[in-house]
């Protein structure tokens, strides 16, 4: 598995979150709590599935709950893919 770059993951996650909450990527702040954008605990299931598809790492929804910002998820994904 090639190592994924944290900045790339961040940019990709911003796109995904913008898609889910139907807003512009420019409006999404990666340091803010996802709940602020209306990402409900149920949406974490979808986001976890997207990360698995894109980066091929197993990600339970609970991990998204433990890393509730885009930055935190990106850091987790980058570490896991090393």
């Amino acid at each position: 598995m090639p190592t994924v770059d944290r900045a790339t993951v961040t940019a990709w996650l911003i796109e995904r979150v913008a898609f889910y909450v139907e807003r512009e990527p420019a409006d999404i702040d990666p340091t803010k709590h996802l709940a602020m954008y209306g990402m409900d605990s149920l949406y974490a299931l979808g986001l976890a599935g997207d990360v698995e598809d894109e980066y091929g790492i197993d990600l339970d929804a609970a991990i998204v709950w433990d890393h509730p910002t885009i930055e935190a998820i990106a850091a987790y994904v980058a570490t896991e893919s090393e």
Partner: peptide, 14 residues
Amino acid sequence: LLAIIAQLPALSRR
């Protein structure tokens, strides 16, 4: 049903 709905897109892919 909501618990299923949240999982539908990933299921449709895999």
